Simulated scan of single mutants.
Amino acid sequence: MIRAIHLFFLLAVFACSKASIDTDTPAITPPTPTSNQIVVAADGSGNFKTIQEAINSISKKADKERVIFIKNGTYKERIYLDGIQFLTFKGESEKGVIITISEARDIWSCNPANKADWGVATVNISQSTDIVFSNITVINSYGFEASDTPITIDCPTDATGKKTVRKDGHQMALRTFSGATRLTFKNCTFRAFGGDTVSPWDGTVGMYYFKDCTMEGGVDFYCPRGWSYAENCHFICHNTSAALWHDGSANKEAKTVLKNCTFEGDKGYKLGRYHLESQFYLIDCTFSDLMADADIYAAASGTGTPLWGRRVFYKNCHRQGGNDFSWLKDNWVIESKTVNSSWVFDGKWTPQ
């Protein structure tokens, strides 16, 4: 008995010592469902086996948060949120919860039964407010799976009756529509190989907050309209045209702000561009040495000289390798600590 107690004491001391040593890699305890949550589990151990079934089971209107807890698993389904309020999707782990479809926007648009982009993305959100996604991976896998050789398909909606589809064409993991605002994404991954991976697109009232997220895609793969704030996010670009894009044409105060973000991509990837009125702020960002020597630029197909001027601002941004391009120099005097969600969203929303 004494030996057993002594062994237990030694094990306890070892565990405490190890915990005090491993300060660089603290243990992360995954969230667990509680009694007031709807549980989704692909293996049937929850209330529902699909996420959409769980969404359909709740009322659309609410004045406080409802939670759908998603257990680890791969969910091959499109998510539709239409007119939903105060709903949180909490994944068991970011790498363990995968929502995925394979869809090229060019193929989708050739089906006369499809209504514009509604359903083109893995996650589709319309007329919904106060939505939170955390610890979730969202993938549109078409470009990762498609052949390098473009294909030609029948396309009744095209004047020629045909459409050529490339593996790096538009593929959306997230697409939001009119009335979708106050959307929060924390510890989420969004992946596609083509353009417009993350497309939050209400330019009038849209407000979007991304924190500790990874976003991957092709041209304009992070392309918000309205107000958007990305904090501590990582961007991976598979295109040499542009990683970032913004449309702020509906309101002079609309802006896209990226703070403490990191960038990598294929050799020669460009940072960003705009076709419409826009406003970019990049603070404390770091770029890989493969980034091209090309400032955020006005696209040739744009609307000409912006009415509000060219608004691209940098503060304490650097390229890896210690060789900063001249256009990365500070051109903005505000202190980094001043940049928070209240500043970004003009005092209308504070998701932090």
Rank of each mutant, 00 (worst) to 15 (best):
L7F: 14
L10M: 07
T23C: 07
D24H: 11
T25M: 01
P26I: 03
P31T: 02
T32C: 00
P33Y: 08
T34Q: 15
Q37A: 02
I38G: 08
I38D: 00
V40F: 09
A42R: 02
D43I: 04
N47P: 02
K49V: 06
I51G: 03
A54R: 15
I55T: 01
N56D: 11
S59E: 15
E65T: 11
N72A: 05
G73E: 06
T74F: 11
T74L: 11
R78F: 04
G83I: 07
I84R: 15
F86E: 15
F86H: 15
K90G: 04
G96Y: 00
V97F: 05
I98W: 07
S102T: 09
N111S: 09
K115W: 04
A116I: 03
D117T: 03
W118V: 01
S128G: 05
T129D: 14
I131K: 15
T137N: 08
S141D: 05
S141T: 03
G143M: 10
E145Q: 06
S147V: 06
T152H: 06
D154M: 02
P156S: 10
G161N: 08
K162T: 04
K163Y: 04
K167A: 02
G169K: 10
H170K: 12
L174H: 06
G179P: 11
A180Y: 09
C188W: 13
F193W: 14
G195W: 07
T197D: 02
P200E: 15
P200A: 13
T204N: 12
Y209K: 13
E216Q: 15
E216G: 04
C223F: 12
A230Q: 11
C233I: 04
H234R: 15
F235I: 02
C237G: 14
H238T: 05
N239H: 14
S241G: 09
L244P: 03
S249G: 09
S249I: 08
A250C: 13
K252H: 11
C261W: 12
Y269H: 06
K270M: 04
G272H: 03
E277T: 00
S278D: 08
Y281V: 00
I283Y: 09
C285E: 04
C285H: 04
S288D: 14
S288R: 10
D289M: 03
D295P: 06
T303Y: 15
T303M: 10
T303R: 14
P306I: 00
Q320A: 10
K329A: 10
W332V: 00
E335C: 06
K337M: 01
S341M: 05
V344S: 15
V344E: 14
T350L: 10
P351N: 13
